[in-house]
Nucleic acid binder design. Structure first.
Length: 543
RNA sequence: GCCCCCUUAGCUCAGUAGGAUAGAGCACAGGAUUCCUAAUCCUGGUGUCAGAGGUUCGAAUCCUCUAGGGGGCACCA
C-alpha cells in the first residue's frame, strides 16, 4: 500500500529514520478510515512531543490529494479519511489491474521452501495432519501471490524404527491371515489398515513369505508397506486439494550420501566429537540445552542425524528461507534444529518453524477418543468424506496455527449459519446470480465499468473502503505468515456485501446506477475469489 | 523435576509490530421477503482480557511470579 511509502518518505523528510510504519484500521469510526501511531514511536528517538511530529507529518501529506481529512488526535495519532474519489479510483484499479492490485509484490522472487505434513508413512493421515496440510497449502498460496518462489515439500520418514515396525506389523498380520495366530510386535501398528495391506500382500505375492523369517524379507515388506501407505497419503491429500512439488525420502538422504557429506563438513568444522563410543553434535554451543547424539554406540544413525542432513541439504539447494510446519508435539526439537543452522553459520531468520496445534475432534460436543497405538483414530479421509474438503479447510483456517482447535464433525457438516464457509461462499454465489440475471435481461453491456462516481450509498462507500484495504490485509498476512487473516477479511467483506444486498437492488431501473453497482459487485467477486483461492476453498457460482 | 504453548463475553475464537472507548460468530429474544438466491438482513448485551507485581507517555499484547489446561524431556522415531 503506497500510503505507507508516502508516510515513509514524509518521515524521512523530517530527518528521522523509521523501520516500519504501522497502519491500522481504527476500531472507532470517529478515528477515521486509517490511522497510524508512528508519531508516538518517533517521539522517543526524535525527543520531541508526538503531537508536533504528527502535525508535521500530516502537513507533508496534505499535498497528496487522496484524503478528505487528516487529523491529529489523542496522544499523537494521525487519522486519515479517504476521499470518495480515491476509493473510486481504487475500485477501478481492482477492475482493470486485478492481479497487480490484489497481489502486491513483496517476495522479489526470493526462494522459499515450505515443508509440511511429512507424516510417517506408517498409517493414514489423521485430522491433525489435515490441519497442517490446509495451513501449509494456504501459506504457499499466500507467499506465491506475493511474488515468492515457493517449493512445497513432503519429508518422508522412510528410514528407522517406525517403518521397521510397520514391516513387522504387516508381516505378523500376513502370517496371521494365512496360518492363524501369530505373535504381534509389542509396539506394532494395530489398526485395521494393517490387515488391509496384509491382504493385498497376499493377493500380490501369495504365500511366498511364509517359509522365510521376517529378517530375510523385511526390505521387501517394508518397501511394500511404505509405498502402499504413501500412495494412500498422496491420494488423501489430493482429495483434500493439497499437492506437493517434491517428496523427499529420508532413506535417499543416506543412499545419495547427503548425510555423509554433511557429517564430513561438520567434522571439518569441529562441530562433532566422540564420547562413550558415540558421535555427538555440539548443540549446546548453539543454544540447545545439551549436546545430541548423531551416531549411536551401535553404529546406527539417530533420527537427528537425518534431520541435520536434511536441513543441510535444503541450504545447499539455495533457498532464502526455510519454513517448517510442525505439529506442536515437536516443539522440543526446535532448539536443536536451530542449533544446526547456527552452527552452519546461517542467520536465525532463515529458518522459520511454525507449530500447528492439535485438533480436538468432537462429535455433537463430545470428544472422540483416539489412540494411534491401538489404531483407533478418525482419519482425514473420513472427515473429508463426511464433512467435505471446503468446510474442513475453512474451519482449520479460521484460527491461527498456534491455537488449539475444537473440530466438531456434527456442527461442521450442518448447512447452517454455524458454518462460516457458506456465509462467504454464499456472497460469491449471490453475486454470480446477479450477473446471470443481468445477462438474462440482455444487459450484458452493463458489466462494462460504468460511471463509478454514482456509487455513493453508505454501504457502497463501506464496501469500497473494505476492498481498498485488501492489500493492507494481504501484506500483514504475508509478513506474519498468517493465512487466517484472509479468512477473517473474507467474512467481513461478505458481511458488508450481504447487508448491501439486503438494502439495495443492484439491477435497478436506472441503467447507469445498475452499471456502477455491477462494477462494484464484480470487484467484490474478484476479491472473494482471490481470497478463497488462497485458502484452497472453492467459489461456487450457485448454491 | 525441567522446558515450551495456551487462558479474552454463556460457547468457539479474532484482536493486525506496545496505541485511542475490547471485537466477531454462535447461542438467546423480537422483527424483515410484491422485486437480483432468507445458507441473507435488521434490532437487542454482555467482559476482574486467569490472578498478582513490574517495564512506559500508553499493556490483552513485553518481563517476573502464581494458578489451571495441553504438549515435550531418550544413544526412541
Amino acid at each position: 500500500m503506497d500510503i505507507r511509502q508516502q508516510l515513509h518518505a514524509a518521515i524521512k523528510r523530517l530527518g528521522a529514520d523509521v523501520p516500519f510504519v504501522e497502519l491500522e484500521v481504527p476500531r472507532v469510526k470517529e478515528h477515521g478510515d486509517l490511522s497510524t501511531p508512528v508519531a508516538m514511536t518517533l517521539a522517543r528517538t526524535l525527543k520531541r512531543p508526538p503531537r508536533s511530529i504528527a502535525e508535521e507529518i500530516a502537513r507533508e501529506l496534505e499535498q497528496w490529494q487522496i484524503f478528505s481529512s487528516i487529523e491529529v488526535k489523542g496522544p499523537g495519532f494521525i487519522n486519515f479519511r479517504f476521499k470518495r474519489e480515491y476509493l473510486v479510483e481504487q475500485l477501478k484499479e481492482i477492475l482493470t489491474n486485478t492481479e497487480r492490485y490484489l497481489r502486491p509484490h513483496m517476495g522479489d522472487g526470493k526462494r522459499v521452501q515450505i515443508e509440511f505434513v511429512s507424516a510417517n508413512p506408517t498409517g493414514p493421515l489423521h485430522l491433525g495432519h489435515g490441519r497442517g496440510a490446509a495451513f501449509g497449502a494456504a501459506l504457499c498460496n499466500l507467499l506465491q501471490r506475493a511474488g515468492f518462489d515457493v517449493e512445497k515439500e513432503y519429508y518422508i520418514n522412510d528410514a528407522g524404527r517406525q517403518v521397521q515396525l510397520l514391516g513387522e506389523s504387516i508381516y505378523a498380520r500376513y502370517r496371521e491371515l494365512l496360518e492363524s495366530e501369530y505373535r504381534f510386535p509389542e509396539d506394532g501398528y494395530q489398526g485395521q489398515y494393517i490387515y488391509d495391506i496384509a491382504e493385498e500382500l497376499i493377493k500380490d505375492r501369495g504365500r511366498t513369505y511364509l517359509d522365510r523369517e521376517f529378517e530375510e524379507v523385511k526390505e521387501e515388506i517394508i518397501n511394500y508397506g511404505v509405498h502402499r501407505m504413501l500412495r494412500e497419503i498422496e491420494q488423501d491429500l489430493k482429495a483434500f486439494g493439497v499437492t506437493f512439488d517434491r517428496w523427499q525420502s529420508e532413506r535417499s538422504l543416506y543412499s545419495e550420501g547427503i548425510v555423509h557429506s554433511c557429517l564430513d563438513e561438520l567434522k571439518e568444522r569441529d562441530l562433532l566429537y566422540e564420547k562413550d563410543g558415540a558421535l555427538w553434535f555440539r548443540a549446546s554451543e548453539f543454544g540447545d540445552e545439551k549436546d545430541r547424539v548423531v551416531i549411536k554406540q551401535d553404529g546406527t544413525y539417530t533420527y537427528f542425524a537425518s534431520d541435520i542432513g536434511y536441513h543441510w541439504f535444503k541450504l545447499r539447494r539455495g533457498f532464502d528461507e526455510l519454513i517448517n510446519i510442525w505439529g506442536a508435539d515437536h516443539h522440543g526439537y526446535i532448539p536443536r534444529i536451530r542449533a544446526v543452522l547456527k552452527a552452519l553459520g546461517q542467520p536465525d531468520e532463515k529458518l522459520n518453524i511454525i507449530l500447528v496445534q492439535m485438533v480436538n475432534l468432537l462429535r455433537g460436543g463430545r470428544p472422540v477418543q483416539m489412540s494411534k497405538r491401538k489404531g483407533e483414530f478418525v482419519t482425514l479421509r473420513e472427515v473429508i468424506e463426511e464433512v467435505g474438503p471446503d468446510i474442513t479447510k475453512f474451519i482449520f483456517l479460521t484460527r491461527k496455527a498456534d491455537s488449539h482447535l475444537d473440530f466438531d464433525i456434527e456442527v461442521a457438516r450442518k448447512e447452517s449459519s454455524e458454518n462460516p464457509v457458506f456465509y462467504v461462499q454464499y456472497a460469491y454465489a449471490r453475486i454470480s446470480s446477479i450477473f446471470r440475471k443481468a445477462k438474462e435481461r440482455g444487459a450484458e453491456d452493463l458489466v462494462i465499468p460504468g460511471n463509478l462516481n454514482r456509487l455513493s450509498e453508505d454501504e457502497e462507500v463501506e464496501l469500497m473502503k473494505k476492498l481498498s484495504l485488501y492489500p493492507l490485509m494481504f501484506e500483514g498476512a504475508v509478513r506474519a505468515r498468517e493465512p487466517h487473516r484472509v479468512t477473517f477479511y473474507l467474512q467481513e467483506l461478505a458481511s458488508l456485501f450481504h447487508s448491501y444486498y439486503n438494502r439495495h437492488r443492484v439491477l435497478t431501473d436506472d441503467p447507469q446506477d445498475a452499471r456502477a453497482r455491477l462494477s462494484l459487485c464484480s470487484a467484490i467477486k474478484r476479491v472473494l475469489d482471490e481470497g478463497l483461492s488462497i485458502l484452497g476453498v472453492t467459489a461456487p457460482e450457485k448454491m
